[in-house]
Design a binder for these strands. Sequence first.
DNA 1: AGGTTTACCTTGACTATCTAGGCTTCGCCG
DNA 2: CGGCGAAGCCTAGATAGTCAAGGTAAACCT
Lengths: 108, 108
Amino acid sequence: MAKTELLSGTLDLMILRVLSGGKLHGFGIGERIHLLSQEVLEVEEGSLYPALYRMEAKGWISAEWGQSEKGRKAKLYFLTRSGTKQLENEKQAWNRVALAIGNVLKGA
Amino acid sequence: MAKTELLSGTLDLMILRVLSGGKLHGFGIGERIHLLSQEVLEVEEGSLYPALYRMEAKGWISAEWGQSEKGRKAKLYFLTRSGTKQLENEKQAWNRVALAIGNVLKGA
DNA sequence: AGGTTTACCTTGACTATCTAGGCTTCGCCG
DNA sequence: CGGCGAAGCCTAGATAGTCAAGGTAAACCT
């Protein structure tokens, strides 16, 4: 409905991927996704923060307080070992499904 | 969690696409998606029928009673003109988003 | 007659997302 | 120095889409 959309169910994957590039705070994760996607994807904060808690509860990511690049107080998230594995799983799952959808669209 | 998954939000697109190949009944639509996706995607009936009603209410598809290929009584769905347009829109949206996600994964 | 397949439908729970707020801290500018 | 806006975090409530798990009916096969 809005100018930008996020495909339901891909948020975790996006977050994991962004965090695989290093520690980052919530706000920054959102910006990063927006940027890397060429401004196509936009993550609302109301989706982002709950997602981060979910993922932390699952042990995929962990957090510590620190500073943002702009010198502000920020909660820095990073991947755990289990999160790294999860990233691989979700990447494969995405590829499988994206390919499958492509096949249906082509009418293979 | 199950052996097969359907990416949330792509069901409408899959249905529209399958119906662009001609009239088909609900049951058959599910089978078709399963088949075309090389058995990767599976649509539960509890998702399929409500989706069909939604889409009929939006005017994208329409239905009439007839017979299935197996000679059974079946409700045959088909695309309306507005549905054909919607299919194009959703196809483009899918491509946009799939590409964007690919970019994030690549870390472009 | 009974079981299996085809086909349709519904209800209730769950989960993810969005909307729409609110909070604090900090830097900048008038 | 006072205020405003940006950076950053958080939450409550509504909504929507999916799934699990049922149930119904007709036709076919044996």
